[in-house]
Design a protein around this nucleic acid. Structure first.
Lengths: 211, 211, 211, 211
DNA sequence: CATGAATGAGGTTTCATTCAT
DNA sequence: TATGAATGAAACCTCATTCAT
């Protein structure tokens, strides 16, 4: 990244037409591929275009600059993962604490490990682009969903549900990331689910009063 | 950063003379300052040298390239934090689970928040440089220390102490980071200690049998 | 030249479009001009680009690095000279030894002195770049052509035609170079032809048996 | 070479003292070693000093700048070779043409191949340093010696002894260099002597009248 | 005298972005 | 609309040379 020109991060045109939507997808996928194959600093717009089978000019037709492109890729990935988590949370309103933790953790791990390489590839871009904002926004969605879920718990009551939600969401990411980086496969992820469920449930129990 | 030159990350010459040692320290501090004031991609070797009050040449007398410099700065910071945590762990061998969690978390939070800006400044460099390795190495030290501590717990026994240690260490970082990023002050960090202690203790209880 | 980067010496993209071909030629010519006007170490890529009326970037669009550019310039020049010599050799198959020497020497001197400054300008680059290889390759072409010629001589037979060819080719270059360096004009070159012809013919006679 | 500052090429102080003379020799030898081990552009003053076991400062005590150092090294080497040739020429005054050629060529080849690596190492520096002048000066000595020799030939007379001498000297260098570059050993050099003798004798015969 | 840390001008190279075709 | 050659600011890094110790 050269200058982080601080320009707009929003895509340039909404892909109204069919063709456009396809092109954007191709560019997204190419970006991830290049990121994985060449690493962050070798990820140039030209290379992305090449890999996508379009010209650099075309890339700039859809994104005002490189940052915007990376941001969009990051946003899409995070949004997917978060949405899965949010849906899981909503589906267990009214359940017990342990059921809630198990369901949410499971959904999160599944979503995140569906394409583990993608998570790895996007780690640096997310930080380097001003995607912190995006990450924060999406995290908020998770936190809110967890919050909304917790207060419906059948077997407990929280005095600080907001803070607890925040800690729950952020504490789960580290072990997740570590597991992905370590290159572990399905069995590792299965074990991870159990441990993260215990982590969340244990903490939730500590911070709540039985109902 | 242009090319991730993949060259050696080891410092170039050990500062033998007093003057040199000072110079290196000045450069370290300048690096952090620039990182904070201008952001990662605006952190150029020239700017670092300027801020340090030396010439670019001097920087390159001690570090073979920019990556190595950043890596060194990251290493020093992480090592400090980890060392504090490790010391705390060692000081509570034989205590109860809750005492252990409280002591370790407290030490970790204190170390990490002594200079919160530094943590923020080094977040991206750590990822961008090949400092993953460094981070991983230091993480291992923490994990081992936690592991050594856990198995001496007065009131509990673990069947998978290794995994538990790993999860404990990685789960604590996220909330920590979030608190720092949020810019919270002393009260936030105090609350954080309580929550992280609960997080750890709760999880530890879940994963162990009473003695 | 800083680092003899040892990277590829092959041009980067073959100029497909007309515009590109022109650009490359302009860069070639500019390189020679700068070499002549400023000398080898003052021949910077920036200066070449300036003189060529293009941007540095354009230079790097066609050549992966400075060495490759210089190598290409050297190669083109040497190839021209050698080709002239080879053609001359082929045109006198079956002639007498003296006719052969006269024809080959004449062609070589003519080719080399068509633009004497170029020869002077490229002397150092040829050595400094890894163009030794190029020079060697092209020399081989000359040697082979001379060899092929010699064995058809109407009036003589050689027992070691290979070695003789090698010596003939290499012995002629020194006096040639000296004459160019001395800045002599047409009359000097005319005299040179006679002397070199004598040199070659005399040696050839010594190393062969009359037919 | 950075700037070819065009400063004086003359050594800075005459090594009046014993110690100085030794130091200069050590530096000379170190220069050649570095040239051979690292190549021309990697031959830095610091590296030379290191290899010589002295400080950079000391190198600058004896030579005003890098060019002067390289020039001195080149000069010494060439002077040695030329002196050997000159001596040989003087020792055969009054002999026959063929004897002259044989003696001079033999001495030249011997001198040049005593340390073939040195010749290779100094090739580029000689050209890059403006040592052309030195080379030219020393060449002149050779040419004059050959000239003085030729006119005493017992069996021939030359109408243009000056030009003939010039051509003889310059024509012999190319094949010599090629033989060295090719890495050939003693047998190659033996054959070379025969061919160069034939080359010179043949040419000399062509350019002279029997006595 | 020797040392070697410090200097800093300047060289090479990259790559996001534009715009004529 | 798509293309991709051209741009050029700016980054990293080197190394001959100096001078305080």
């Amino acid at each position: 990244m050269k200058k982080t020109t601080a320009g707009s991060l929003k895509p340039r045109k909404t892909p109204a037409q069919r063709r456009s939507a396809v092109t954007v997808d191709v560019i997204f996928e190419a970006t991830i591929q290049v990121l994985l194959a060449h690493g962050f600093d070798q990820t140039t717009t030209t290379r992305i275009a090449e890999r996508a089978g379009v010209s650099v000019g075309s890339v700039y037709q859809y994104f005002p600059n490189k940052r915007a492109l990376l941001a969009a890729v990051v946003r899409r990935h995070i949004a997917e993962v978060v949405s899965a988590g949010v849906a899981a949370c909503e589906s267990v309103h009214g359940a017990t604490l342990r059921e809630m933790c198990s369901a949410a953790v499971s959904a999160f791990v599944d979503a995140k490990t569906r394409r583990p390489e993608v998570s790895r590839a996007l780690y640096l871009p997310a930080a380097a682009v001003g995607a912190d904002l995006i990450v924060r926004e999406e995290s908020m969605r998770s936190v809110r969903a967890v919050h909304a879920m917790l207060i419906t718990a059948a077997d407990a009551q929280f005095s600080q549900p907001a803070i607890v939600s925040q800690v729950l969401v952020t504490s789960v990411i580290g072990p997740m990331q570590a597991a992905i980086e370590s290159g572990g496969g399905a069995p590792v992820f299965a074990a991870l689910k159990q441990h993260l469920t215990a982590l969340c449930a244990g903490y939730a129990k500590e911070m709540s009063r039985p109902n």
